[in-house]
């Protein structure tokens, strides 16, 4: 990590926790999208936080459902 040169070298330290990068990605997307859709600036950052939370919860839900299907349902279907 000490020898890492930002931007020139990829951040390989994130390989094992890559899914945490979902958080800044969702935040950035929400900032742009709510800037287009929000009608009042007073509620802007609250809307960004809500949208970020909704997307993260949605993706985590899909991941749990897929995990359940792959880890439990498919092995059950394969049993003779």
């Amino acid at each position: 990590m000490l020898a890492w040169t930002p931007f020139l070298e990829p951040m390989n330290a994130m390989q094992s926790v890559w899914y945490l990068l979902l958080l800044p990605m969702v935040f950035g997307i929400s900032v742009v999208y709510r800037a287009l859709r929000e009608k009042q600036y007073a509620t802007y950052w609250r809307s960004v936080a809500i949208m970020s939370g909704q997307v993260v919860i949605g993706i985590v839900g899909i991941a749990v459902a897929l995990g359940f299907f792959v880890q439990i349902v498919i092995p059950l279907l394969n049993q003779p």
């Binding site: 931007f7 951040m11 994130m14 990068l21 800044p24 950035g28 997307i29 900032v31 742009v32």
Partner: peptide, 13 residues
Amino acid sequence: GVLFLVFCGALVG
């Protein structure tokens, strides 16, 4: 927002 995403992308990858 857009430049934040580009910055993060270049930082990570």
